[in-house]
């Protein structure tokens, strides 16, 4: 009987994912309404570095339209996948996603409320700020309620579900009353990256980096946390501190990501889960691999979303689920053939 797991070495996986991501990023720079060659893309990059961006049209396309969008897709994808991993470890449940604790529904309520107020009391630029703030407030509420429970993971999940339901009822009510604003709201809720600007990237990139470094530092403790809450304490982990930090990273990254790009589903669920099946559950490899995998998945989905049915754009949230769900099922079946999943 062979019970040895068939895991791929995390180092190998991380190198492969990095390479794929690099190739895909260059490809994505080339694709679009104006197709560019590799040479043009390289030249544009050189121009940009030398500070001659204004005069060359190709450089302007690359710099102002495509590059911020690609970088935003990568950072949001990485952030969502890492948040998903944090949620799965925090709840010891591989079916958890970053949205399960109510961040996304909270952010949606904030955004929908803000859109009603836009033009009357607040400028349009305030929508993401209100959205992120409301996502964070909802998570903080969930955290405060869950802290009273004896089993923190359980209470967190239950409180999250309850408060999420409350928030989605508010959102649904708002949609019902939206009138001519309905399409804007629905489009936002579906998630997409068509509004990507450098300012989005400048917010997401540092945030994602902090999240990555923080979770790399927590990786050994996250490993121990998988052995169960009590065992983790016995083995020397300050469990409450670990949980609070993970929840903090998860909430901030997800709330800001959702406020910039809407609710993009499935990345946070599928990426850490599939990687855990492929490289094992050691978080020291799983954290960077998830970040890369999330970036890769969202960049792929977004590139397809903007090129497949051009000039019409498919909301990327629809694509991630359409492509992600069958892949996920196939992987689960494939793994179950050899051995039971996690």
């Amino acid at each position: 009987m062979s019970c040895r797991p068939h895991w791929i070495s995390p180092r190998w996986m991380i190198s492969a994912l990095s390479l794929c991501l690099l190739v895909l990023a260059v490809t994505a720079l080339m694709l679009g309404p104006a197709a560019l060659s590799v040479r043009q893309v390289c030249q544009a990059c050189c121009h940009a570095v030398r500070g001659q961006a204004e005069y060359d049209p190709v450089t302007r396309i690359v710099l102002t339209t495509r590059l911020p969008r690609i970088l935003l897709a990568m950072t949001v994808g990485a952030g969502l996948a890492m948040s998903g991993l944090a949620a799965q470890t925090l709840l010891r449940n591989s079916l958890a996603s970053p949205y399960v604790i109510g961040v996304s529904n909270g952010a949606a309520v904030g955004a929908v409320a803000a859109m009603f107020l836009v033009g009357k009391w607040i400028p349009f630029g305030a929508v993401p700020v209100l959205s992120a703030a409301s996502g964070l407030m909802v998570t903080a509420t969930v955290f405060l309620f869950a802290q009273r429970g004896r089993n923190f993971g359980h209470s967190l999940l239950l409180t999250g579900i309850a408060i999420s339901a409350f928030c989605s009822a508010l959102t649904a009510g708002a949609l019902y009353l939206a009138g001519e604003r309905l399409q804007t709201l629905v489009f936002w809720l579906m998630g997409g990256l068509w509004q990507a600007t450098w300012s989005d990237v400048l917010i997401m990139l540092p945030l994602m980096s902090i999240c990555l470094i923080g979770m790399l530092l927590l990786a050994p403790a996250m490993n121990v946390a998988l052995a169960g809450q009590r065992s983790a304490r016995d083995l020397g982990v300050n469990v409450r501190r670990l949980q609070s930090l993970l929840l903090f990273f998860l909430a901030v990254t997800t709330a800001v990501a959702v406020s910039r790009t809407g609710v993009i589903g499935f990345v946070g669920l599928i990426v850490p889960h599939l990687l855990r099946l492929t490289i094992g559950a050691d978080h020291r490899g799983l954290v960077p691999a998830s970040a890369l995998g999330g970036a890769l998945l969202l960049l792929t989905a977004d590139t397809i979303a903007r090129t497949a049915a051009a000039p019409v754009e498919i909301p990327v949230g629809i694509l991630t689920a359409l492509v992600g769900a069958p892949t996920f099922l196939w992987m689960l079946q494939y793994r179950a053939g050899g051995r039971a999943g996690v």
């Binding site: 040895r4 797991p5 490993n223 052995a227 169960g228 855990r276 559950a281 050691d282 996690v342």
Partner: peptide, 10 residues
């Protein structure tokens, strides 16, 4: 918990 996805060495 028995559902820990680790090898014995890990």
């Amino acid at each position: 918990p028995t559902d820990v996805p680790f090898t014995v060495r890990q």
